[in-house]
């Protein structure tokens, strides 16, 4: 029986879809089978971020309406052996799906796959309620900004009401700005939200380029963000994670000059 994990944030634009895409690819690279569900009905995006937009035949609403089997609606990612995408419908409305529909769908997918990652839409309305309905666990993605943290806190409260165990990913941390005192640190965000940390992803321009190409950053080499997504995937799988050497700002710059131009200052 697989695990269903919803990736949510409240606020839009903080990196839910990118996180879903990269965690999915990283978990699949580690050998577990993964289905990614785009739960953002009417505003689908996981397909383009994954680079699978040209291969969609059926979608989530087709599967729920019984126009096709669930297995038939899954798109296999040809770059990895065990990664699938269930795309959202672009033309339906959020209320084309009910929380009960989602529970049924996810239970069926959990029977055949190790992980079901659900990319939650922004907001806390119907789309959110659908996305969390079938989830066993939640990952809240927040960037170190007041608006993102405030919205994340609302979502954390709603997840707690439903007894869904929740962990945190802090996304787009700029070590340079933290050092300057112009950005909340990872520790600040953990303290404010009072959540267990799953990982802290640095701001990394490789992710922008990867998204342009429709290629998960973790499949494109060892950028700082890709390495962190892989570490997070290992933590999710309960694997040993090599401790990240604590490098200061200058260390990071050195490393950036060495083989990556990450973290533009």
């Amino acid at each position: 029986m697989g695990r269903a994990i919803v990736i949510t944030s409240g606020k839009g634009g903080v990196g839910k879809t990118t996180t879903t895409c990269n965690l999915g690819a990283a978990i699949a690279q580690l050998g577990a089978s993964v289905v990614l569900i785009d739960a953002d009905i009417g505003l689908r995006n996981l397909d383009v971020v994954m680079g699978l937009e040209n291969r969609i035949v059926y979608h989530l609403v087709d599967a729920i309406a019984g126009r096709c089997t669930i297995q038939k609606a899954l798109i296999k990612d040809r770059r990895l052996d065990n990664l699938w995408l269930l795309p959202a419908s672009q033309t339906d409305d959020k209320d084309a799906v009910s929380p009960e529909d989602m529970v049924g769908l996810i239970n069926e997918l959990k029977a055949t796959h190790d992980f079901v990652l659900i990319d939650c839409p922004a907001g806390i309305e119907q789309g959110f309620r659908n996305a969390i309905a079938g989830a066993d666990e939640a990952i809240v993605v927040a960037t170190p900004e007041v608006s993102s943290i405030r919205d994340a806190d609302r979502v954390v409260g709603l997840l707690a009401q439903r007894d869904i165990p929740t962990r945190l990913i802090v996304n787009r941390i700029s070590p340079h700005l933290v050092k300057k005192g112009d950005m909340l640190s990872q520790a600040d965000v953990i303290e404010i939200l009072a959540l267990e940390l799953l990982g802290g992803v640095p701001l990394d321009e490789h992710v922008v380029a990867s998204t342009n190409k429709g290629m998960p950053a973790v499949l494109e080499g060892k950028s700082l963000a890709a390495r962190e997504f892989t570490r997070i995937a290992k933590r999710l799988l309960g694997l040993e994670v090599e401790p990240e050497r604590e490098v200061g700002f200058f260390g990071r710059i050195g490393r950036a000059l060495g083989f990556s131009s990450a973290n533009p200052a």
Binding site: V146, I149, R150, D153, V178, G181, D182, L184, D188, I192
Partner: peptide
């Protein structure tokens, strides 16, 4: 620092939200 200001504002806003 703006980081400290952000922390203070968040503590206040979240207390009311919660």
């Amino acid at each position: 620092s703006s980081r400290e200001v952000a922390k203070g504002r968040l503590h206040l806003v979240l207390a009311h939200d919660r």
